[in-house]
Amino acid sequence: MPASFAASKSNTSKGTRSQVIVAGAAAGLVSRFCIAPLDVLKIRLQLQYHSLSDPLSSPTPARRPLGVVQVARDILQHEGITGFWKGNVPAEGLYLSYGAVQFWAYRTTTQGLNTLSNALKRDYGRAIPGTAMSFIAGAAAGTAATTATYPLDLLRTRFAAQGPERVYPSLLSSLRSITQLEGPSGFFRGLGAGIGQIVPYMGLFFSLYEALKPVLADTSLPFGSGDAVAGVTASVLAKSAVFPLDTVRKRLQVQGPTRTKYVGGQRMPVYERGVIKTLGMIVKHEGARGLYRGLSVSLVKAAPASAVTMWTYERALGFLQSYDLLEK
């Protein structure tokens, strides 16, 4: 899923719904463009298949999984510098809509939970803990945004997985091809893994972010970057915990009639759509290490992505509030 989008309680409660949506969308756009090359590298690494029991793969260096530098060099040599931005059009649409839906859902859920908490405190003398509200709101926001934007996520993955030989000549042709060959359900391959990943991830992220932000706000960090540091720390911890499900999602997204046409797809096995079965197949044939290919790039990506996202969101929302824009 896109880089983590967290929203501070102070700003989400003061900003109007329109301000939150616009600020979230702006944060998504800026963040996506900055981290696109790292995203392509991560996807290519996750889609490398390396069977531990295949006698053709283990002894042959040419068949072993490539490292980050090798993958980057291969993209540059065979696809040019623009290869690092493959899938950027659907990805920008993904980040734009994902950020807007998530910030809106987080704000709406938080307001509803605050109302419920106040009612519980009034009637029973006990309110909902702040950490619990952050977890619930984050999970709900992540689920809503993941489901609403999943077709764009799938297209982003498929375009990023294309090598020098294109599978889809254009975005329009990909929509037409998937609809004709796979049907509407083809746009939602791996959705179960996406939701299974995003619920604990966003719950953990928002809980950690809300806990860290007040602490870092009092520290002497340059350019008011406490928000960015809180976002980076929360994202790294949460992402590491759920990364295997991200790998499963990527493997499932490139299944279907075009499976063998992607980079490394000639050796990619056919996976069952079930998340648990796919996890089991990867561990059985590639070992637990197969679930974590691309984690290092993902963590490196998390830092600038979360920092840029949170910094942009806070400033964009502050700008809109300062000039009383989108007050209704």
Rank of each mutant, 00 (worst) to 15 (best):
I35C: 04
L45W: 04
P61W: 12
E92R: 03
I75Y: 09
G112M: 08
G142D: 00
S53Q: 13
A132K: 03
N118M: 07
G80R: 07
V20D: 06
Y98D: 01
A91K: 03
Y98T: 01
Q77P: 03
R64K: 14
P65D: 13
S51R: 14
A145E: 02
G87R: 01
F135T: 07
A105L: 05
L116M: 13
I21R: 10
A119K: 13
T147V: 15
A140C: 12
L113E: 02
L47T: 04
A27C: 04
V101L: 12
Q70R: 14
T110W: 10
D123M: 09
L38P: 00
K42V: 10
M133Y: 02
R126A: 11
G87K: 03
H50D: 08
A127I: 01
D54M: 14
S117E: 05
Y106F: 11
P65W: 06
T115C: 08
T131A: 15
S97K: 02
Q46H: 03
F33M: 15
I35D: 01
A140W: 01
Y95Q: 05
V30C: 09
V89N: 10
P37V: 09
E92M: 15
W85C: 11
K86I: 09
S18I: 09
S117R: 10
S53E: 13
I128S: 04
L94A: 06
K86A: 14
R17G: 03
I43A: 02
P55I: 12
T115A: 13
I128H: 01
N114T: 05
N114I: 03
G138K: 02
V30W: 09
R107P: 00
D54H: 08
T146M: 12
A36M: 12
T109L: 10
L66I: 01
L56P: 00
V89A: 12
F135S: 07
A23P: 04
T143N: 04
R126G: 02
P59Y: 08
R44S: 07
R122Y: 05
P59F: 11
S57F: 12
I75D: 04
G99V: 05
Q19P: 02
A72C: 10
T110V: 04
R122W: 06
L45F: 06
A62Y: 13
S57A: 15
R32K: 11
Y98V: 00
T109C: 13
I136H: 03
W104T: 07
E79D: 14
S31P: 04
S18K: 15
V89K: 12
D123I: 06
L116N: 06
L66G: 01
L76I: 08
P59E: 11
L94P: 02
P55W: 12
Q102K: 14
S117G: 07
L66R: 13
R64E: 13
G87D: 03
L47C: 07
L41H: 06
L41G: 00
